[in-house]
Design a protein around this nucleic acid. Sequence first.
DNA 1: GTTGAGCGTT
Length: 307
Amino acid sequence: MAECYIRVAEDENEEPMEIPSEDDGTVLLSTVAAQFPGACGLRYRNPASQCMRGVRLVEGVLHAPDADWGSMVYVVNYPKGNATLHPAVDNKRKMDEMDAASAVKIKRGIQKTSDLIVLGLPWKTSEQDLKDYFSTFGEVIMVQVKRDAKTGNSKGFGFVRFTDYETQSKVMSQRHMIDGRWCDCKLPNSKAGPDEPMRSRKVFVGRCTEDLSADDLRQFFMQYGEVTDVFIPKPFRAFAFVTFADEQVAQSLCGEDLIIKGTSVHISNAEPKHSNIHHLFSNFPGRSPSLAAMFERAQYQYPSSHV
DNA sequence: GTTGAGCGTT
């Protein structure tokens, strides 16, 4: 299969647009999203069954249903919670703002799992060992062994994340004999005390690894809604900012641990908790409001912690 | 090459 154009439309009855494939015949979701902002996938009507079928999507890459894409029209999928954001959607089914936020959460599961810290690991225990052990409880979607960056030695603790909340509960309820030592699995302190987030369209993405590119982040986060900006500080600082078109989408993600290319990242609000901006300008009476406001806008784009 | 309560390179 070689490079071609596939026909894509927002609706089966709409005028389709031709979108280019890659050299290997796949189509990038980002290519679709370039023409249909906020798109999260494609579907098509199966000629045999007359049912709609989803197009396979792996890591931002759409795969042709058969040997090639053929001449049929593919229909753009939008995130459910984000549906009202798109002008093509009729106003009759318009949800109010609260519904839009909760729809995202419901779609993603009411019983959210979170990373568990695994304390007391033997120095020799590897990530494979952890995965083998915890897989006996249920499906594992992430394991980490924290190591010294220089020596590569284990620090004796790690993290695990399960698909199902029941598995997580079971694992937390008991001690674990791993490679000859008793270990405990707990909710990490880092996610204790979730504070009231500021309302913002921008989220802070913590615990990024260096192999996560801006494009990786964009590809990943666009499943939740239209991404308008991705910022990764250079040199590497282990965090990033992602801005969504809609505040509801951003807020619905705050406080969550998400797994991108095997890396568990933490989402929180982009706004610093204790802004000292107004203190900085408080010595300039009269002018301070506008100066502070100007600085705040600049700060918002390029937080001081980046330089 | 060591260690054994903790907390993931904001």
